[in-house]
Amino acid sequence: MTETDPNVAHERAGEALGAEIASADDVRRALTRMAHEIIERHGSASQLVVIGLQSGGLEPAQHLAEQLERIVGHDIARGSLDVAFYRDDLALRPVVPEAATDIAVDLDGKVVVLVDDVLFTGRTIRAALNALSDFGRAKSVELAVLVDRGHRELPIRPDYVGKNLPTARSERVDASVRGIWLGQQERSAS
């Protein structure tokens, strides 16, 4: 997602987003805290690769990488990952060819931090783990999300969480660096 007018970016077909759970400032503060947690665990961060999941994870991944770079004072390797070809529900989802995978570094021995906007069933992360293994044998893979909304269908848990948000299955969560919203109607399983 590119930097656009937040009001436009968050109104799909005139739909209201629901209640604001967190502001843009809240989200940025959470990303800064998550960056510090990553550094506490990994020190100099020289082996870190921050990979954003297409498409909601890209912006948070950029911000997280920038915070990490600010703290450690050197460049952090980045990438993006599209898991469309690894999903188990292909027939249910449209293809988004604009969502490209771009992982320029060999992941052998690296510490990968996967970044996504909302953690829900865990199926996207399952697909991402499969996809990542095609790019080398990472030393470890960790998961950072802006929102953990529960309802996991697989044994997957996040390592760094912006906000834990208890939700009903039918509710809809929108999360980006512009804020977090909780609405009444889930668009589709994510």
């Binding site: 469309a84 070809f85 690894y86 293809v95 060819p97 995978t101 060999d106 996809a131 095609d134 790019f135």
Partner: peptide, 23 residues
């Protein structure tokens, strides 16, 4: 255009060391 655009994604897969996806 749809075929050409989706093919761009697969061209990226072709550039990987591991060129196989489970789709």
């Amino acid at each position: 255009i749809d075929v050409m655009n989706v093919a761009e994604s697969f061209a990226e897969v072709e550039r990987r060391t591991m060129k196989k996806v489970p789709a």
